[in-house]
Amino acid sequence: MSDGKWGDLGPRAGSAVVMIAVGAVALWLGGIAFALLATLIVVLMIWELVRMVRPRHEVAARQEAGIVAVLFPLAILYPSFAVFLLLIAAGVLAGRTGTHMGLVALYTGGIFLAGLGLVQIRLDHGMGMALWLVGLVVITDVAGYFAGRILGGPKFWPKVSPKKTWSGTVAGWIGAVILSLIVAIWVYDWPMAWVIWTVPGAVALSLASQMGDIAESAIKRKMKVKDSSNLIPGHGGVMDRFDGMMGAGLALMLGLLVVHMAA
């Protein structure tokens, strides 16, 4: 089990258990605990992003992570100023990264907004929706991991993410749909009209999670690095682990915003 295509399964599973335990406690507590966890994840992702773009400037990575560590909690406390604070963060980081200004600004904005979205989802819609989103991302990743290694087959986007297969991608969608139907029917007892919309919604969020992963893969290939860092055994960095969560969180936040505006 320690060699070949399953060589990372042991450390990957051990790290996953720890992350699930920490995340479950934060989700249960909500409030400040969940906001602090989201802040930590966002700050570490920004630190990794700057380190990838400027690998020989560790001090700059720490400084820019420190800036976000101040601005992100302010955005949580004062959501009316969130866009303004986001523009400051993206502008400062992009202005200090030379030839990759656009990439850093765009990805910083995505990380910042997705983190805020996760906090707002937990705050406004309760632990149930937040837990469902986490479960959807996890099952997308797990189903894709095993199906991709067992079934193999054509690559989903070989130029960007050479390990991701169509079999793993579709398996992630199926897992997300099954989980969402279980939640909709047996947990919330939704009427059938709502349940029908669960299927395309689950696929869309699963795809958003996968696209978050692919977006990070594109950055890593551009910067010629294997992992965003080595903070998490078996997973690489925080960005390697939470890129899918950020993609799905951002998509769900935007979806809820559209529904709210249409209501």
Rank of each mutant, 00 (worst) to 15 (best):
A171Q: 08
P55I: 01
K163G: 11
G172F: 01
I214E: 10
V183T: 09
M246S: 11
D8R: 14
M127T: 09
D3E: 13
R122E: 07
F146H: 02
L27Y: 02
L252I: 08
P73V: 06
M253Q: 12
K220F: 02
A215F: 11
P191H: 03
F156L: 15
A130P: 12
G30L: 10
G31W: 09
L207D: 11
F84A: 15
T169E: 04
V22I: 12
L77M: 13
A202G: 10
V17T: 12
V17R: 09
L256S: 09
L103T: 11
I20T: 11
L123P: 00
D243T: 04
H260C: 06
S228F: 00
I88H: 09
D124A: 13
L181I: 06
S229E: 04
A26L: 00
T198E: 05
T165G: 08
P158W: 01
K155I: 00
R62T: 07
D240F: 00
R96S: 12
F72N: 01
G152V: 00
L136A: 15
P79V: 06
P158F: 00
V104R: 03
I174A: 15
K222R: 14
L106C: 11
K164Y: 03
S209Y: 02
G244M: 01
K163L: 07
V258L: 15
M239D: 10
V22L: 15
V142W: 00
I219V: 12
V199T: 09
W194L: 15
S217W: 01
G201M: 02
G95V: 09
G244W: 05
G201T: 10
L37A: 11
M223N: 06
I232D: 04
L85V: 03
L118N: 07
M253T: 15
K220W: 03
T108G: 14
G98R: 12
G30D: 07
M127A: 11
A69K: 05
L44K: 10
L93P: 11
A60H: 07
P154Q: 07
M101S: 13
S217K: 06
L123Y: 11
I67S: 11
G91C: 06
V195P: 14
H125D: 10
T165M: 06
A65S: 09
V170Q: 04
L86P: 10
A69W: 04
K155C: 05
W47F: 13
A90C: 08
L85F: 13
A89L: 03
V259E: 10
S167G: 04
L179I: 02
D124N: 13
V195Y: 06
A204D: 07
K163R: 12
Y188M: 10
M223S: 05
T165A: 09
K5L: 09
P200E: 03
P154C: 05
H125I: 00
H100S: 15
L85W: 03
T198S: 12
A218R: 14
G109I: 02
H260T: 13
G128W: 00
L93H: 05
G212S: 01
H57G: 01
A263Y: 08
L93S: 06
V259G: 10
L29N: 01
L37D: 08
G172K: 03
L256C: 05
V187I: 13
L136D: 11
W6K: 13
A143Y: 01
V104W: 02
S180Y: 03
L256H: 00
Y107H: 13
L116H: 04
V68A: 08
